[in-house]
């Protein structure tokens, strides 16, 4: 086999790989259908934290609020709430919403899981 043929084969191989990558990443990528909330887009995450804050003002149940926030990832509830509060203040959320997040933040900063109580 001549060297020109080998070069042609390598070029064909590279073209095939590139086409495969384009197809697999852009044209028909793997579709995720049962994802976990930790990969929600940031505005959805913040809205979820805000809902948790509003729900907290309905029942003042710190344990329930912490459990609801736990599905967003491994960060502590206070960290998640603080991040949401920062997003809210930066994106012109209403005073009521910011206040709800502040109240939840205070609760989460002082929250002790029931299992850790003496």
């Amino acid at each position: 086999m001549s060297s020109s043929n080998i070069i042609k084969i390598i070029i064909a191989l590279i073209i095939g790989i590139v086409l495969g990558l384009i197809y697999g990443w852009a044209i028909d990528p793997i579709e995720y259908v049962d994802v976990t909330p930790n990969i929600l887009r940031e505005d959805y995450r913040v809205d979820y934290v805000l809902m948790t804050a509003e729900a907290y003002q309905n029942d003042f149940d710190s344990d329930a609020a912490a459990r609801r926030l736990a599905i967003l990832g491994s960060e502590s509830p206070a960290t998640l709430t603080a991040a949401a509060l920062q997003y809210a203040t930066s994106n012109n959320f209403t005073e009521t919403e910011i206040q709800s997040l502040q109240i939840l933040l205070t609760a989460m900063q002082t929250y002790q899981p029931q299992g850790n109580n003496p």
């Binding site: 086999m1 043929n5 042609k8 084969i9 390598i10 064909a12 191989l13 590279i14 073209i15 095939g16 790989i17 590139v18 086409l19 495969g20 990558l21 384009i22 197809y23 697999g24 990443w25 990528p29 793997i30």
Partner: peptide
Amino acid sequence: FHIFFALLIGLGLGLAYSW
């Protein structure tokens, strides 16, 4: 045939990597 075969192998490798 060799070129076509190389193209197919490359396509398969690309898909396997991307999927």
